[in-house]
């Protein structure tokens, strides 16, 4: 998926959000805030990726398969501001082999620990947000009919 596709989804979702939120009854604006709070914790997806991540030492072989390699896409867009640096293509082609991807042997870096904290924080929000919303919504009751 390229940038434009994601941007399109984003822009259309803004419009969907606009119409959906205006249709929310004002009486439920507080649950709206708590539930939007819970769903914005979908950022937990990023936190999980970080928490699951392994850190390859900068000079060692990569843990993750690195594609694209600049040498292979030299006629595409510039990969980086550094792309004017002459690149050692032999080293590039040798280094990118996914053979290095042995997760259990690789060290864990800061990103792993930051990710774990983020998972915990987002979980507070997800569980707390949905639970408190449900608690509030269960309080809204209609008038009891006297003639039942």
């Amino acid at each position: 998926m390229d940038f434009i596709s994601i941007l399109s989804i984003f822009v259309l979702a803004c419009f969907v959000g606009y119409y959906v939120v205006w249709s929310v009854t004002p009486a439920l604006h507080t649950p709206l805030m708590s539930v939007t709070n819970a769903i914005s914790s979908v950022i937990v997806v990023g936190a999980l990726i970080a928490a699951a991540s392994l850190q390859a030492p900068p000079d060692g072989p990569p843990v993750y398969p690195t594609h694209p390699r600049p040498c292979l896409t030299s006629q595409g867009r510039p990969v980086d501001a550094y792309s004017d640096i002459p690149i050692d293509c032999d080293a590039e082609l040798g280094a990118g082999t996914p053979a290095a991807a042995k997760p259990e042997n690789s060290p864990r870096g800061w990103s792993h620990w930051l990710g774990l904290i983020a998972v915990a924080l987002a979980s507070i929000n997800i569980f707390g947000g949905f639970a408190v919303t449900q608690r509030m919504l269960s309080m809204y009751k209609k008038r009891e009919r006297k003639d039942g």
């Binding site: 984003f10 979702a13 803004c14 969907v16 959000g17 939120v21 939007t36 709070n37 769903i39 914005s40």
Partner: peptide
């Protein structure tokens, strides 16, 4: 999608 929803909300 979520970000857009919450942002507009």
């Amino acid at each position: 999608i979520t970000g857009a929803l919450v942002g507009s909300s």
